[in-house]
C-alpha cells in the first residue's frame, strides 16, 4: 500500500494505519523523564518525585454525539484519563481539564458536561485542579474538544503494571462485556433503531482495579490495558506483540451482551473491534486468577468479568471458535475491508 502523505481519517481510527502516524508523532529525542517514557507507548508514563513513582497521562476527547445513552463527553473525558492511570496501577489524584469550544455551543450543555465530569471524579476520589478554555470560530471544529491530563501515584512498591509484561501461563481476564460503547455510540449517532437501546459502558475503573490488585497480591497482575480505540482486538494484539507471546481466547467465554452481538451482526461490525470505555484487560498469574475474578465480580463495574483465555508461547492472538475451529483475532485496520470471495 502507498504511504500516505497527508493525515486522513484512517490515521485516527486506532488500527494499524494509526501506528504509521504514531511513528511521526513520537519522534521526540527528549522522551523520558527517568522512568517509563514516550518510547513505551504505554497507557501512561512515569517519573519519580520524592521516591514515589508518579504516573502521568493525557487524552483529548471528541465524541459524536456529545450526549449518548450511558454517558456524555464529560464522563468519557474523565474516565478515559482515570482508566489510563488505573491500568498502570496508579491511584488517580488530580486531573487537568482543557476545553476548546466552538462558537455557539449551548451553555446549558457545558453545565451538564461539567456536572457529569464531577460525578465521575467523585466515584474515585480524584479532582480537576486546573484548566484552560479556548473558544474558536464557528465551523472550525465540531462542538467541543476536551483534553484532560491526569497524575496518579503507585502506592505500593510492585504495583506498577505495564501493558507489555504478559507471560506464558497467564490467564487473560476481561472486566466485563465487550463492544458496548462502540456499538452504542454508532447506533445512537447514526439513528439505527435496533429495538433494544444499547448503552455505553463508560465508567472510571480505579476502585474496581484497586480491589483486583489487592486480591491479586504483589506482582500477580502481570499486564493490564484498557481496550479503547480498536477495541479488544487491537488491545490484546498490542499486549501479545509487546510481550512476544501468543494469546489463545475461547469464543464461548468472551462476554458480549446479546443486544450488542445482534447489533453487530445486523451492521456487520465485530464487537471485538470497537471501543470500550469502562473495561480493562489483564494478564494474571494463574494462581491468582480466581481471586482477581472474584474481586472484579464483586464490584458493580466488574459483574460480568470473565477469564477468557491464556498466554502461551508463540505470537499472535487466536480464538478457538464455538464449532471447534480456530481463527485469528486481528487488529482492525481502521475501516473494515471486505475479503470474502
Amino acid at each position: 500500500m502507498k504511504k500516505d502523505t497527508e493525515v486522513n481519517m484512517m490515521h485516527g481510527a486506532g488500527g494499524e494505519v494509526m501506528g504509521e502516524l504514531l511513528q511521526t508523532l513520537t519522534a521526540f529525542k527528549n522522551n523520558n523523564a527517568g522512568g517509563i517514557g514516550l518510547e513505551s507507548l504505554d497507557d501512561g508514563s512515569t517519573f519519580t518525585i520524592g521516591g514515589k513513582t508518579t504516573v502521568l497521562t493525557t487524552d483529548s476527547h471528541v465524541v459524536k454525539p456529545i450526549f449518548f445513552p450511558g454517558g456524555d463527553i464529560g464522563r468519557v473525558a474523565v474516565s478515559g484519563t482515570i482508566n489510563d492511570l488505573a491500568v498502570m496501577g496508579a491511584r488517580p489524584i488530580a486531573l487537568t481539564c482543557a476545553m476548546v469550544i466552538e462558537e455557539g455551543f449551548p451553555i446549558t450543555d457545558l453545565e451538564k458536561i461539567v456536572a457529569s465530569m464531577d460525578e465521575a471524579l467523585g466515584e474515585v476520589g480524584a479532582a480537576v485542579i486546573t484548566g484552560d478554555t479556548k473558544v474558536v470560530e464557528k465551523g472550525s471544529l465540531d462542538g467541543i474538544v476536551i483534553n484532560t491530563a491526569g497524575v496518579g501515584v503507585i502506592e505500593e512498591e510492585g504495583f506498577l503494571i505495564r501493558d507489555k509484561n504478559l507471560s506464558v501461563g497467564d490467564k487473560i481476564i476481561v472486566s466485563g462485556t465487550l463492544g458496548d460503547h462502540g456499538l452504542a455510540i454508532v447506533s445512537f449517532r447514526e439513528g439505527f433503531d435496533l429495538g433494544d437501546q444499547l448503552k455505553s459502558d463508560v465508567a472510571p475503573l480505579w476502585t474496581m482495579i484497586e480491589a483486583a490488585m489487592k486480591a491479586a497480591g504483589t506482582n500477580n497482575i502481570h499486564a493490564m490495558k484498557d481496550p479503547t480505540r480498536g477495541g479488544f482486538a487491537a488491545c490484546i494484539n498490542e499486549m501479545a506483540r509487546k510481550a512476544g507471546v501468543k494469546v489463545v481466547v475461547s469464543e464461548e467465554k468472551v462476554p458480549i451482551r446479546e443486544s450488542v452481538a445482534s447489533a453487530g451482526s445486523l451492521l456487520g461490525i465485530d464487537p471485538l473491534q470497537v471501543a470500550n470505555e469502562g473495561k480493562c484487560v489483564m494478564g494474571v498469574a494463574p494462581e491468582a486468577a480466581d481471586r482477581v475474578l472474584a474481586a472484579l465480580k464483586n464490584h458493580p463495574y466488574g459483574k460480568n468479568a470473565a477469564i477468557i483465555g491464556e498466554v502461551i508461547e508463540g505470537s499472535g492472538v487466536v480464538m478457538q471458535t464455538r464449532i471447534g475451529g480456530e481463527r485469528f483475532i486481528e487488529p482492525p485496520l481502521g475501516d473494515p475491508v471486505p475479503r470474502v470471495c
Partner: peptide, 18 residues
C-alpha cells in the same frame, strides 16, 4: 422489520458499506 430497517438505514447512510 428491524433487520430490514437497519439494512435500509445502513445503506442510505453508507455505514459499513464498502
Amino acid at each position: 422489520d428491524t433487520a430490514l430497517r437497519i439494512l435500509a438505514q445502513q445503506t442510505e447512510k453508507r455505514f459499513n458499506t464498502p
